[in-house]
Amino acid sequence: MSVLIFVETAEGKAKPSSLEAVGYGAKVAEMLGTTATALVLGDAQELEKLGNYGASKVLHVADSRLNTGIIQAYSNVIAQAVEKENASVLVLAKSSLGDAVAARVAGRLKAGLASNVVELPNLSNGFVVKRSIYTGKAFANTMISTEKKILAIKKNIYSVTPSSNTASVEAFAPTLNDSDFVAKITNTEKATGTISLPEANIVVSGGRGLKGPENWGIVEELAKVLGAATGCSKPVSDLHWRPHHEHVGQTGVKVSPNLYIAIGISGAIQHLAGVNSSKCIVVINSDPEAPFFQAADYGIVGDAFQVVPKIIEAAKKM
């Protein structure tokens, strides 16, 4: 028995959300009296360092065909790793790839899958996890009754302090079929040099209150000073002021950063659904009646074009 953690990489390095998943998985392993194994696919570096986050072993599939996230192939490899390690629990971080892969592995292994998990499991009576439902508006306590269990965890729900432990690295050569590669990725468009919105610890978002895409400079500058990702409300992405992948809300990206700063966003219930797991919310809006203030920790009523530059100056001095 063991706990297996699927680690997603970007440019050969483990994503921060996956490091959190390793820490979470190691803690689950400890609760179950077993050890944690991390699984890394494709070319990657510094694998032994996953030990810093609690993995005692790293399984590495050094197959360059897996450098991009092919959903079928990844699912097949992960399912084989679960069998090889006789893992009772598979942990992964929620992402566009992780979600798609987790579902297929669940189907293949007939394993109960809980997504959007927000806490460590409760083992006092079966295996029960708390997960976020209704797009962050509520929680369900869900029992997983299968022998093998899959947990897709939400970002920023478990804090892990890295140790100096290192993990042993073992090469793993699963059986891959041509049918796993039937889908071809023909092109990838990715914003470069910016911080990934779902991975970000701080998010600065703008809404229609900014009046036009030409005014996004203050959002971008504040984000830059704070090391934050930029987001936007649905009307802003619908108006093509900003790209769709920046849309935060019910039908867009759901974020759970430490700090969410909303500028010129009134706070429709659909937007709140995408941000209500944030640890701290700051709302800047000229309308004192904006519903977003009800959900905020800090609020400033004022003109964004006067307020935000002051905040940028203060942040620069930090």
Binding site: L97, T186, T188, E189, K190, H245
Partner: peptide
């Protein structure tokens, strides 16, 4: 849709 962009696929 992927984090921060799009992936084009054929199958």
């Amino acid at each position: 849709e992927i984090e921060g962009g799009k992936e084009y696929l054929e199958a």
